[in-house]
Design a protein around this nucleic acid. Structure first.
Length: 464
RNA sequence: GGACAGGUGGCAGAGCGGCUGAAUGCGCUGGUCUCGAAAACCAGUAUGGCCUCCGGGUCAUCGUGGGUUCGAAUCCCACCCUGUCCGCCA
């Protein structure tokens, strides 16, 4: 959410932000509604002020007159009633005026508010301008010595790769058919060692981020109120992507929503709180099940574990002081910690600087990480895939955009300010199982378990 | 799911139609006193919006939303939340 004062002072900046992000928000209309709203409110306040003043003068007199009415003769009653009417006429007119202004505000406010909520965070000046993910810019890449994605899989490992789908099917450790039978498209069942591998990678990530990087582990709700989705700025823009728990339909008082990321609840922990500067930065991590409708992705990545409706994710957030340097520092730190985790897992990856068009409404800056997935990409004449990088991580910097909506503030000596927030994927599984399963496969279809994951799998070294 | 009780400032707690943005106590901040501290005493101490000639002005907020009234923390309705007991249950 944008500071309306900032919008009024510099509308061009926000007009440009809308354009850079390829969004459709009528900034001029918002400004106009904002002006109308303030004008109506000013008139209403003046009327209320008058009403209050008048009430204090007239009220006691009215009380007295009405008291006298009870014991008055018929003649006196007429006289007193007339006096009451005179006294009541002016406040009544004001009441009517206030009511009418109220009605006008009620008409105007929903649209005003919607536009305000839709107004995006301007991209940072150093974010490259671009229309879509195709314009994202590679920052750096890394790979372990034993696998260079510049060469083919066969060149690296001496045999042609199987996809993670083939591998787990052959091992009998995943069942997509039954997943679909139970829950519909993009559903899956993991079994045995692959289920344990899924748990292992999550455990490793949570332990790593909490113990080595000092993030506080928190277990949070994944079914939340609409205001929680709105406060974290996933709504209104991302409403299509969230599953609705339609409680009203069956007589409940309010609906609930399934969260698509642990960020929603982690960020909402301190909604409407005024923190002390000494409490900052707050560093939280959670492991939560994430639900995504994948609306608009029909026909895309339909097979396997890449694009699915339900997965688990270790997510980290930082709530810090309103300081650009500090925000940038945490962004770097979080990205660095994920890089080092991927290096422990020995997965080739690259960092992408997302361009303006790929940022989403709430981000000032976003860095994605893509991991090497041998089964993706074009197939050659023999049907062997080229391999391709696939998105597995995303690190966002939001300045005060999210905390303003959530109303998370802090006291610093005699100043009060809105906090900054950041969030980042530590690991999302099963998607991360794709590079792990495919890169660590052996010619016989067995899968070696990465060394760092073995302690989380009772020392098991191979899935066969 | 059933039956009660209750939601007021940082905390405790009064108020139950106008004098109440709110008594009192605690806490916190500053000051007096003191070699220093404690105690005592004095003063200050909610949040947000709008306007401002930057002195201030004004409105809203006593769980939330409606209503009654010239006027609501106070009366009425709905909802939310918390506590206690019973039932069910991972």
């Amino acid at each position: 959410m944008i500071d309306l004062k900032a919008l009024r002072a510099n509308p061009e900046l926000f007009q440009k932000a809308v354009q850079l992000k390829g969004m459709d928000v009528d900034v001029a209309r918002l400004l106009k509604l904002d002006e109308q709203r303030r004008e109506l409110m000013a008139r209403q306040e003046a009327a209320r002020s008058e009403q209050k003043k008048l009430g204090k003068e007239v009220g006691p007199q009215l009380g007295k007159l009405k008291g006298q009415l009870k014991s008055a003769t018929e003649e006196q009653q007429k006289e007193l009633t007339a006096q009451v009417q005179v006294l009541e006429s002016k406040p009544a007119a004001l009441k009517q005026e206030i009511h009418e202004l109220d009605e006008k505000l009620k008409v105007l406010e929903p649209e005003w508010r919607h536009l305000w909520l839709c107004l995006p965070q301007p991209p940072d000046s150093d974010v490259p301008i671009g229309a879509s993910a195709d314009d994202n810019v590679e920052l750096r890449h890394w790979h372990p010595s034993w696998f260079d994605p510049k060469r083919s899989f066969a060149d690296n490992k001496g045999f042609e790769p199987k996809s993670h789908i083939e591998l787990v099917k052959k091992l009998g450790l995943a069942d997509f058919e039954r997943g679909v039978k139970i829950a519909g498209s993009r559903s899956y069942v993991l079994t045995g060692a692959v289920m344990r591998l899924h748990q292992a990678v999550l455990q490793l990530a949570l332990q790593y981020i909490t113990e080595e990087h000092g993030f506080q582990p928190v277990s949070v709700p994944v079914i939340v109120r609409e205001q929680t989705m709105e406060g974290t700025a996933f709504f209104p823009h991302g409403k299509d992507q969230a599953y609705l728990v339609d409680e009203q339909h069956r007589g409940g008082t309010h609906d609930l929503w399934l969260t698509g990321t642990g960020e929603v609840s982690l960020m909402s922990l301190h909604a409407d709180e005024i923190l002390d500067v000494d409490q900052l930065p707050l560093k939280y991590a959670t492991c939560s099940t994430c639900f995504r409708r994948e609306a608009g992705a029909a026909g895309k990545d339909t097979a396997g574990l890449y694009r699915i409706h339900q997965f688990d994710k270790v997510e980290q957030v930082v709530i810090c002081k309103a300081d650009e340097e500090e925000s940038r520092m945490w962004h770097e730190k979080m990205i660095g910690s994920v890089e080092s985790l991927l290096q422990k897992l020995e997965i080739p990856y690259r960092l992408l600087q997302c361009c303006t068009g790929d940022l989403g409404p709430k981000n000032a800056d976003m860095i994605d990480i893509e991991c090497w997935m041998p089964s993706r990409g074009e197939e050659d004449a023999e049907g062997n895939p080229s391999g391709q990088l696939g998105e597995t991580h995303s690190a966002s910097r939001l300045y005060d955009y999210q905390c303003r909506r959530l109303n998370i503030r802090y006291n610093d000596s005699d100043k009060r300010a809105i906090c900054h927030s950041l969030n980042n994927t530590v690991i999302a599984s099963p998607r991360i199982l794709i590079p792990i399963l495919e890169l660590y496969q052996n010619p016989d279809g067995s899968i070696s378990i990465p060394t760092v994951l073995q302690p989380f799998m009772q020392g098991q070294k191979v899935i066969a």
